[in-house]
Amino acid sequence: MIETKNLKKHFQIGRNQTLHAVDGISISIAENEILGLVGESGSGKSTFGKTLIGLHERTAGDAFFNGLPLPQKYTAKDHLRYSADIQMIFQDPYASLNPRMTVLDIIGEGLALKGIPRADIQEEVGFWLRRVGLHPDHMSRFPHEFSGGQRQRIGIARAMIIKPKFVVCDEPISALDVSVQAQVVNLLEDLKASLGLTLLFIAHDLSMVRYISDRMAVMYLGTLVESGPSDAVFFEPKHPYTRLLIQSNPEADPVLERTRPSAALTGEITSPINMGPGCRFADRCPEALSHCKSVTPEPRLIASDHLVACHLYDEA
């Protein structure tokens, strides 16, 4: 349903400086599938999501929705046309909600654009507020009157109310307590089953990503280092970065956490500004080989549907 080929988004910062935020991502998400996207903070996950829905112009590469190419640069008309099918839940809930609009107008905006009568919108918004664990009375309030997690749920209701086909969820549950998280995740699964929804689920909570996703992809400095079925990536990670990530996943068990060694500080984090060739993880990789710094590893299929970009898996 969604496919990208070698998608790139570079930012020009200052004179002669290029920041390779997303640097050649090829990915496909099947209809009715949840793809979890994890990775280092600053590795380009939000930028990838925003580029997919047309908030950033693509620097290079292609993107397809249901087999049809998406525009490289969206016009106002394109935004209107695709917003019925493609939505995004933003990482920063406050910045993405208009402070001067009531919750009713924010969540109901998509329906109003379709010309649905106000009374019906009100009813529908009330229904959705309840589905995300808020009260219909909250409708007349403004965003600043809500807690962080309540705002996040307003963003979820806004994206889902128009029954889109594909949603980019950027950290959609990070501000919720675990019980409300469970409620929202169950809601997403219900929508997946009842509406055939397809999701790109960006999050840092590895246990939750494993739980909800069919497949999981791992980003590091603008590139995809590993992707495959969620259980394979979580329980048998192959790329050294993925292994480091999974090993660092803390658990809700104080005794266990007290015995966990402190974070391994290996090497400087590589900068995405003006990058050269070679593996981007080479400066920190405990298993680096002699040619890792000069030759870029290509993604390689190591098991059915399991891709890894690392020289350790090169054919001998």
């Binding site: 994890v38 990775g39 280092e40 903070s41 990482q91 962080g148 950290e171 990070s174 501000a175 840092h204 590895l206 480091l244 990530l245 660092s248 996943n249 803390p250 402190s262 974070a263 500080l265």
Partner: peptide, 17 residues
């Protein structure tokens, strides 16, 4: 107040340390 919600687990561990 929720200082590490946007951090991956490796950087989170470093910040907590």
């Amino acid at each position: 107040d929720e200082p590490t919600t946007a951090l991956d687990v490796t950087i989170q561990a470093q910040i907590l340390d």
